[in-house]
Design a protein around this nucleic acid. Structure first.
Lengths: 331, 331
DNA sequence: TTGTATGCGTTATCAC
DNA sequence: GTGATAACGCATACAA
């Protein structure tokens, strides 16, 4: 069965398509009786507005694209849910694209969304994205850009980020308060804003504690579990007794490394991660982690799109203190 | 800047829109020189095909919708990735919708996809979906339906599922081999095909071991962590010394319950979960789990869509044996 | 090999 | 209040 169109309804009711269109759009110029008749007929005939045709004619797309590195990271999954809750409410359909951290996939996603003439793009760029050029190229006046979590500040449009600086500052200060003396960090990549900001917060905490900036304490690179294991091993060999990790998976790897090195957590070695992944609370020992409130990040990103705002929105982080960083006597 | 259209290119080259359309579509009737000129001009002018207009005119959408309960479950996240890999390769754009297990959201998602005239719908229905009626109503001849994981066998279209029966059979048999005597199960909801099939496999394993069917060993309900904790407690009080759980989160809850009851895992109490969530390998003790190969499920679902197949595809499960079910002396 | 004419389903701009 | 007409951008049957 082909879909019912407004023309079908028009024929049935002896009206014209224009009237049907107006009636279904709730245009006040239409007689109330007519509108009711149209709505009744539409329901009976199983009419569903053709969003494709509607969007083509009106030039207004009711679709928003979301581009993330991967949907199965707790952070991005929840950010998407937060954005969806706002966007669906406002009548938008959401297209989700994963880049798997590849800039090539990101370019394809941008192109796909552009071809589909979406009303807006919510993006958190891939690690491979060294700069903003490919995103700038994909921009046009029709679709609004909102960046979240990982943002390029040189691009137009709203940016919704965590207060990474203060979050990392708090995490590092917490480790200092717990009595750890040589605190390293698994820092991530410096082309990614959130990691850069966390590193700054980490350094500030150490500096406020009277410690001078020591680059040898910084382990750059991916925040995957395996990288965390390798870097964690190095940090331990270098004499670190604690780590602030910009990600939870790398923190998990560091925990493994510490165990392999015969360290007792948290007595000999303290760790705080970032993102508050589900597994952090069920690890042994449970991992302290900086909660990034991803659902709220997504919500704010969607709201920024709807408002057409151009601001930088900062969302607070919350440190979840668990056993991995709570040294005996300091609990 | 408004987007470049084929008319713009036509004017610039002194040709007609039809020729441009054909040239860009790779129509062999177009002179090779013309095609190259068109491609060059299109690139220079930053042309991007308007997928909306194209889809309206041709009646063929290059968009596929995927409906899942939630994207942040490892199973669904990976299933989506698997489907995407196939669909993107074939030139399709993917729209992802979450139902959060609510039938109301599922109806909305179906409507959204229908309004967007997608070429196909890949769906794993919500727990609230008692039957297939709302999905059947949303069906039409234009879009192909493929169900995966949780399927209604009374609907047309392909179904891609795990071999749940044999998987659960294997998991339960494994517990029997490890010497557990009274094996209960956290069974899920019986309106959901995968849980129903797992329960059947569980019973078959017990029956093959000479044990009669005992409904008191079956704990129905959600497979959330909290439910698992409650049901696990009941199972322990009822004298069970092992559980096969149709989900990992409920298995996690059961582990908590066992610990709270002072049970030693795996000596006093054995557990096997399902889905092989990331956290299973880092739990203490590591949780044995039935791996469902979600990426392959997603791939097969996408392939079934592309092929227009109508078959039932079964994907093998693999039991990941970990400490939670390996009693001393049986390792 | 290219051009002409038409229409996908809807909405916007006139007119009445 | 409603109708007639055109147009969104593209693809395709039919001509040439």
């Amino acid at each position: 069965m082909a879909k019912t169109t407004i023309t079908d309804i028009a024929k049935k009711l002896g009206l014209t398509p224009s009237t049907i269109s107006r009636a279904l759009a709730g245009n006040p110029r239409i007689k109330i009786g007519t509108r009711e008749a149209v709505e009744k007929a539409a329901a009976e005939m199983g009419y569903e507005r053709n969003a494709v045709a509607s969007s083509l004619r009106s030039g207004k797309a009711m679709t928003v694209g979301i581009i993330v590195p991967r949907i199965n990271r707790m952070f991005f999954g929840n950010a998407i849910s937060g954005a969806e809750s706002v966007l669906n409410e406002a009548g938008y359909t959401v297209i989700i694209c994963q880049t798997h951290e590849k800039v090539e996939n990101e370019k394809n996603a941008l192109k796909t969304l552009s071809m589909n003439r979406v009303a807006g793009i919510l993006i958190s760029h891939s690690i491979e994205s060294a700069d903003s050029s490919h995103i700038r190229e994909a921009l046009d006046s029709r679709s609004k850009l909102v960046q979240f979590d990982r943002v390029f500040y040189d691009l137009p449009g709203a940016k919704v980020v965590n207060d990474n600086f203060h979050g990392a500052y708090e995490a590092t200060s917490h480790l200092l308060r717990m009595g750890y003396k040589k605190i390293g960090t698994l820092a991530g990549y410096m082309n990614v804003s959130c990691y850069k900001e966390r590193l700054d917060g980490y350094f500030k905490a150490l500096s406020d504690a009277g410690m001078s900036r020591d680059e040898s304490l910084v382990y750059y690179g991916s925040i995957l579990q395996e990288t965390g294991r390798v870097s964690g091993k190095k940090a331990i060999e270098a004499g670190c007794d604690a780590l602030y990790s910009a990600g939870d998976f790398s923190a998990l790897g560091a925990v493994e490394a510490a165990c392999e090195a015969g360290k007792n957590i948290p007595e000999d070695f303290g760790i705080v991660g970032t993102a508050n992944e589900d597994f952090t609370s069920i690890m042994n020992p449970p991992l302290s982690s900086l909660d990034l409130n991803p659902y709220e990040i997504g919500r704010q990103a969607a709201l920024a799109f709807l408002d057409g705002s151009d601001e930088v929105v900062k969302v607070k982080t919350e440190l979840r203190e668990r056993l991995s960083s709570k040294r005996n006597g300091n609990r």
